[in-house]
Design a binder for these strands. Structure first.
Lengths: 126, 126
DNA sequence: TAACTGTGCTATCACAGATATTACAGTTAT
DNA sequence: ATAACTGTAATATCTGTGATAGCACAGTTA
């Protein structure tokens, strides 16, 4: 599943897992109806307690990203809507911009950072 | 001191206080050698325990923003360097940009947000 | 001396995250 | 039916952190 947990982060593990899955769906790596690893398998793979995995999955289910069936497994939802995550991302982006502005950062500096991360228009990543 | 605490926020109170003071210094509202409210005064004004205020001040002192003298009070440091805070702000900005990119947000959309927050070049705030 | 300052320490409480364990119920293949 | 998987649920425990309360002590100032 290519999920990396940063134990030093203040972000809870269950949220890190949620985010990784959401991003995988966003990238198209996880497609609708595709089966996720079982709770116990992911628990073993990540060395994270099954209850923590369960929490991630339960919240993702509440948010309509996945659905789970007892006895079968967990699957990517047919129409996994990511709009709310994009909105949340834009909100935190806005907060970051406001904070930088308050600290006197020039807007051109922010533009440059975006330019560097997105690339010059070609297909470079990260 | 014009410090507003959001008790619903997940950001600890002592960090909110730190941030407010740092931003006040950044805005020039708090000038070098200017005295801060006493621990007990701020504690009473904000209805926050003195230990919590103390933690904010201690960390700010560790970070070179303020200095405290027993019996006298706490003061803005002579050369309060905010560079590390600007760097931290830019780091979190970068994270926000990367996250938005991963979610497929167009870079022009981010540029628009910056444009709206910074204004069109005139002097509007927030 | 009195009234302020900051400092230090201990103790307590509440909450959240994470873990461990056990048990139960649904699905699938043999 | 059985075995081996799935998810679900509940309880208990441990831990770290944030926040509070209270006390004592030391430096400063008028």
């Amino acid at each position: 599943m290519n999920i990396f947990i940063d134990y030093r982060s203040r972000v809870p593990i269950y949220e890190q897992i949620k985010k990784e899955i959401i991003l995988a769906v966003s990238r198209g790596e996880l497609k609708p109806e595709e089966q996720l690893p079982s709770l116990r398998a992911l628990s073993a793979e990540l060395s994270v307690n099954i209850n923590t995995i369960k929490r991630s999955f339960s919240e993702l289910e509440d948010e309509g990203i996945i659905y789970s069936v007892a006895g079968k497994g967990s699957f990517i939802s047919d129409r996994a809507e990511l709009d709310s995550y994009v909105e949340a991302s834009l909100r935190s982006f806005s907060e970051a911009v406001k904070n930088a502005k308050k600290l006197g950062v020039d807007k051109e500096e922010l533009a440059t950072i975006i330019f560097n991360i997105y690339g010059d228009g070609s297909d470079k990543n990260d």
